[in-house]
Structures are given as structure tokens and as C-alpha cells.
Design a protein around this nucleic acid. Structure first.
Lengths: 123, 123
DNA sequence: AGTTTAAGTTAGGATACCCTAATTAGGTAA
DNA sequence: TTACCTAATTAGGGTATCCTAACTTAAACT
């Protein structure tokens, strides 16, 4: 499933809010991504139609198995990138911020290399 | 001057074509960026209005001083990222490809750190 | 010069994301 | 229960980037 960067952001944020707060609300997603609620409603509906989450109007939002898998994958990429940037001397906060942007665009190949590299450096 | 990622791509490509071929044509930009000529015409006009390049319909394209400065800056970021990825074991071609995507989105702060890191590793 | 071809432009649309303003639904408090 | 408040939705737009089809211009060939 090929998703837009933005769709990935929404999935990841939903996944994170779910872990933190249990219940995921439209307005939480909106504030986390710094967009307005109608924008979220729209994207949530799009993700729902793709079968990545379950949602009924004004109800609860939960990721489907596939949605969660994708969200985890985004997070996984994120962690690898943060570590690489930290190894390069980028301060933690900055690394996290930039990693959120990079995580959507790097190839699987690159991510795998980075993961290996990070693993080696950690030992 | 705050440019979109895409605008930066166009600037960089124009700069590169100029170095390689001397003359920059709409269709060269189009094929380099994998878009259609009308799309290029449109963006070139936008960059012209911003004072980043000089162009008259069906004439030659050349970057202004400011446009070239920006293009160089993009390239500079690019090189630093390629090197970092290569240090992480990413094969050259893949590194280049991904760097083109990353170069637009990382912060100046991160780029500076990466440059330092790369410099250290090279010695 | 006259014709053909390639390059570039114009016109008209599509899509992805985002917004504000106004409306509706759901839950809470009096 | 009624009134109210907040969350969410709908309606109607906007911008950036891209496209195809049709037209124009300029260059190249005969």
C-alpha cells in the first residue's frame, strides 16, 4: 500500500495518541499535526476507505491491523533515522523533528543500511 | 527566500543542466524532473516572477545571482547528505537518490552537524 | 521561400491538502 | 428536561503541482 507522506503522518499520530491516551479524537489529531478539524475529518475518511482504520461519524477511531502495521513501520523508520542523526551529532530534539520529515521519503534500502549501521555503532 | 521543495528541485536541476550542457531548455528540465513541459513552463514563470531566473518566452533560461545562490545551497546540502548516507553504508546511487529528497526538508541546524561529522570522518 | 517538425505555450482540468464559517450531534449541568 | 457547550461535520473555497489536447512559434530541411 503506497501512501502519501501526509497519510503516513496521520497514521503515525493516531497510533501514538492511542498509546498515550487510549482514546483518539479528531481534535487531538488536529492539534498534533497542526491542522484544523475539518482537515482531519477528511483524511480520516480517506484512510477509512482504504481500510486502514475504523471510524463511524463522531465515534471512536481505531487502526485496523494493516493500518497499525503501517504506523509501526513509520515509527520504526523514524527511530533508525533519529539514531543516525544523533550519531552525526545532531541534538536529540532537532533529530526527532527532522526524522519526522525524513522518515517518509527514504527508500527501504537506505533504511535497512541505516539500521545496520546504527546497530553496529551501538555495540 | 522560502521556497517549496519543488521550486528548489527546479532551481537545482536548472543549475546542473547549465553546468553540463550550457544551454537550458524546457524539455531538459521536464525530462530531468519527469514532468511534462507545460508544468515546467509554469514553474519557470513562477521562479522568474520571484527574481530567481531570467527567461523570455521561448528564449534562454539563466539563473540570477540569487537563484544561483539558492541552487548552490541545495547542492551543498545534497553533498553533505550523500556523504553521511555513504558513511552509513548506503550504496552511492541509492544515497544520491535519497539525498535529493532529504536535502529539501532537513533543518539548517542538522545540515551543519552533518557537515561537521562528515568532515571529521573524512580525515 | 515554403514546408515540416520539434519546442514551447495556452486552455482547461484533476488531485491532494488545507482553510473558514456555519450547522449538527452528544453529553453535561441546571 | 431544557439549555448549553464542545466536538465534529458540511459546505464552499483556495493553492500548489501536475496533466492532456490543441495551438503557435521558431528552427531545419528541401
Amino acid at each position: 500500500m503506497k501512501l502519501s507522506r501526509r497519510a503516513e503522518d496521520y497514521l503515525r499520530i493516531i497510533y501514538e495518541i492511542r498509546k498515550e491516551k487510549g482514546r483518539v479524537r479528531i481534535k487531538d489529531i488536529a492539534s498534533a499535526l497542526e491542522v484544523r478539524p475539518p482537515t482531519v475529518t477528511e483524511m480520516v475518511d480517506k484512510l477509512r476507505r482504504k481500510g486502514l482504520l475504523i471510524y463511524e461519524k463522531r465515534g471512536r477511531i481505531s487502526l485496523t491491523e494493516e493500518g497499525e502495521k503501517l504506523a509501526r513501520n513509520v515509527k520504526d523508520r523514524h527511530m533508525a533515522i533519529v539514531k543516525l542523526l544523533e550519531i552525526a551529532g545532531v541534538p536529540g530534539e532537532v533529530a526527532k523533528r527532522d526524522a519526522h520529515k525524513i522518515e517518509h521519503i527514504v527508500s527501504i534500502e537506505t533504511i535497512e543500511c541505516i539500521k545496520n549501521f546504527v546497530r553496529k555503532m551501538e555495540v
